[in-house]
Amino acid sequence: MSNQIVTISDIAVGQSLPELVVPITASAIVASAIATNDFENVHHDKAAAQATGVPDIFMNILTTNGFVQRFVSDWCGAAARIDSVDIKLGAPNFVGDTMKLTGEVTEVQGDKVEVRVSGRNAIGEHVGATVKLNFGGAA
């Protein structure tokens, strides 16, 4: 595995990140909810989720945050430090859906790069995110 997939000199505004397709299975939702220490029952107990009026268990926000980071990390590798992740949640990720993550570089200033990420599922936009990266921190 490469530690440095892109370097700052490769990056320009408007550049697209490689797409990532995430199958939303019950296993994926439960494994990631537990890996993020989130034991809210709507993320692992279908009957409890349905009692709140939704059709099935759904992905927790800490996992959405994780997938956004992983999506950007797949592209920038170890070359950049992540300074911040700003997330707005929309359509929930329910079991049986698929989320497609796309991203674009929206700003480059010196070593600082801003990436805009969108994750869409069958219902609509699950997540819109802005990730700020710093390519100056690495050795």
Binding site: M1, N3, Q4, V22, A28, A31, S32, I34, A35, T36, T63, G66, F67, Q69, R70, S73, D74, G77, A78, A79, G137, A138, A139
Partner: peptide
């Protein structure tokens, strides 16, 4: 466990030398 759940493969999270190489 978190990296497995997210499919995160960046080596700085589990490989000492890769992390050091990245500063």
């Amino acid at each position: 466990r978190w990296c497995e759940a997210m499919g995160e493969t960046n080596a700085i999270y589990f490989d000492e030398s890769a992390a050091q190489a990245a500063g």
